[in-house]
Amino acid sequence: MVDFLLERTVPLPLDEAWRRLTEWPRHGEAVPLTRVTVVTPPPTGQGTVFVARSGLGPLAFDDRMEVTVWQPPADDAPGLCRLEKRGRVVLGWAEIEVRPGPGGRARVLWREELRVRLLPGLFDGILRQASRYVFGRALNRLLRRP
């Protein structure tokens, strides 16, 4: 099991940063070899389920997630979304928090606890580095593109 924290401060209003980070299909555009499908009807909220399918052909796997906390930002109050990962391969949780930052900017915190079934703890260091790299790039892309 690995945990990590990513932080970004961006020149966006809170609601726009939140929108960019919680449009789940966009995550598939930001993560290589991944497609995200929302399997519950809109709008997104607590109970929304989506699946990130990553990989190629027979080496692909599904990362099923459910939104368990949904508190969009309001005025200057922070927003928080918690996802529970319930796939056959990937387990754990992720939290996306959007809060006021310096100079009217948005401060984004992405916390994640990640477990890959059958992967021995010996590989935690490599998994942490790879996850920080992949999710960090995805976070940057999501925040940059409207």
Rank of each mutant, 00 (worst) to 15 (best):
T44W: 08
V10W: 02
A94L: 11
R86C: 09
Y133Q: 15
I126K: 07
V90E: 06
L33H: 13
V69G: 04
P78A: 13
G136Q: 09
W18A: 01
E97Y: 00
T48P: 00
A138M: 07
D15A: 13
R8I: 01
G136A: 04
W93N: 06
P146W: 01
L114T: 04
Q46E: 15
P25H: 09
L80E: 13
V2S: 03
V2Q: 02
R86F: 09
T22W: 00
L122K: 03
P102I: 00
R19P: 00
E113P: 01
R86V: 15
V10E: 08
V89H: 05
T44R: 10
R64C: 08
G104T: 03
G55V: 10
R145Q: 10
Q129V: 08
P11S: 10
G92I: 09
G101H: 00
L12A: 06
L56C: 07
P41D: 15
G121P: 11
P73G: 11
V38R: 06
V116N: 01
P11Y: 07
R88H: 13
D75P: 05
A130V: 13
E66Y: 05
R111C: 02
L139N: 03
V89K: 05
V67C: 02
R19L: 09
G104D: 03
R105S: 06
P78V: 08
W110K: 02
D76T: 12
P58D: 10
K85D: 12
P43S: 15
R141F: 03
C81L: 15
G47C: 11
L127N: 09
W110T: 01
P120C: 05
W18C: 03
W110G: 02
T48Q: 10
R145Y: 11
A52Q: 10
R99C: 01
W110M: 05
K85W: 09
Y133C: 08
F135Y: 13
D62M: 09
G101L: 01
R137G: 14
R117F: 00
E95T: 15
R115A: 12
R86I: 13
V134Y: 00
R117I: 04
T34Y: 02
V98Y: 00
R99F: 00
P120D: 06
P58I: 11
W24E: 07
L56T: 15
P41Q: 14
W70C: 02
G125M: 07
W18L: 02
T34A: 11
G104V: 08
A60W: 15
R132Q: 14
V98E: 00
T48F: 12
G47S: 10
Y133I: 07
E66P: 00
I96E: 02
W70A: 03
G92N: 09
W70Y: 12
L143T: 01
T40W: 13
L56K: 08
T48E: 12
D75A: 14
W110P: 00
T37N: 08
V116G: 02
P13K: 04
M1C: 09
F50K: 05
V31M: 14
L139S: 02
E112D: 07
G79S: 11
R145N: 07
R82S: 04
G121V: 07
P42R: 13
G101C: 03
A60R: 15
A60Y: 10
G121N: 12
G57C: 08
Q129L: 12
P120I: 07
D15Y: 01
L83W: 08
R128F: 06
R117S: 07
T40D: 13
A77D: 14
A60K: 10
